[in-house]
Amino acid sequence: MAIGQTFPIRQRVRLGLALLVISVTAACSATFNNHGYIPPEEELAAILPGVDTRESVESSVGRPATSGVMRDEAWFYADYRVRNFAYRAPEIIERNIVAISFDDAGVVQNIERFGLEDGQIVPLSRRVTESSVQEITLLRQILQNFGRINVADALGGDT
């Protein structure tokens, strides 16, 4: 092929197909997101149950990031890793939870670690609101109103 000549049509089609396959393959690769924070093991090892208090834990490892993960009896630190893969729903592939529990005086009772394999469910935030409003469908509203209709008023006549 001489300089200045363009690629033949077959080579352009092959090149285009190769670029398409590479693009589709790259778009379907998994992406990972990390969320949360757990104090390093060295800092957790420095916390002594029966000795340290909420204040000393706060100064050494800090408070949990949001108020939704704090309770009076325990603080929960959590981190997790999520895999996003093309059209599939995101999947948590790794989760770690550190629970530092306190007694009534605010002294550390225990430090526990939970992982995804433990299957421990920890409600980090409970926001349950009971509603007194019932969902009423249009058909139900129409049927409930049949007994309340005054025929004379509906027809515009005198009673």
Rank of each mutant, 00 (worst) to 15 (best):
N150E: 10
P64F: 06
G115L: 05
R81Y: 01
T129H: 03
N110P: 02
I136V: 15
I111C: 02
E91N: 14
E58F: 07
R71W: 08
V82M: 11
I136E: 15
N96W: 02
I121H: 02
Y87C: 01
R127K: 05
R148F: 12
D153R: 11
A86I: 11
A89F: 09
V82Q: 11
T137C: 12
A99I: 14
Q141C: 06
E117C: 00
N84Y: 15
A99T: 14
I92A: 08
I100Q: 07
T66W: 04
A65H: 06
N145R: 10
R81F: 01
R148I: 04
Y77M: 12
F114S: 03
I121M: 03
E112P: 01
G115P: 00
E73T: 10
V82W: 08
F102E: 01
S67G: 02
V108D: 00
D103N: 15
D153I: 07
S101Y: 06
Q141I: 09
E91A: 12
S101H: 04
Y77I: 14
V128I: 14
N96G: 14
V69H: 06
E58R: 14
F114Y: 11
G106C: 12
R83L: 12
L116K: 00
Q144V: 06
S101F: 09
N96E: 12
G147I: 01
V61C: 07
A105Y: 11
V57W: 04
L143C: 00
G119I: 00
S59W: 05
E130T: 04
V57K: 06
I97P: 00
I93N: 08
F102Q: 01
S131C: 03
D72C: 01
R81L: 08
N150Y: 04
R88E: 13
D79E: 15
E135S: 07
N84V: 10
G62N: 11
V128W: 09
T137H: 11
R88C: 06
L139N: 06
V69N: 10
R88G: 03
V61F: 05
Q144L: 13
P90M: 14
T66V: 10
V122F: 12
G157T: 06
R126W: 03
I92V: 15
Q141N: 08
I111P: 01
R63V: 13
S101K: 10
G68A: 03
V107E: 06
E112Q: 13
R126L: 13
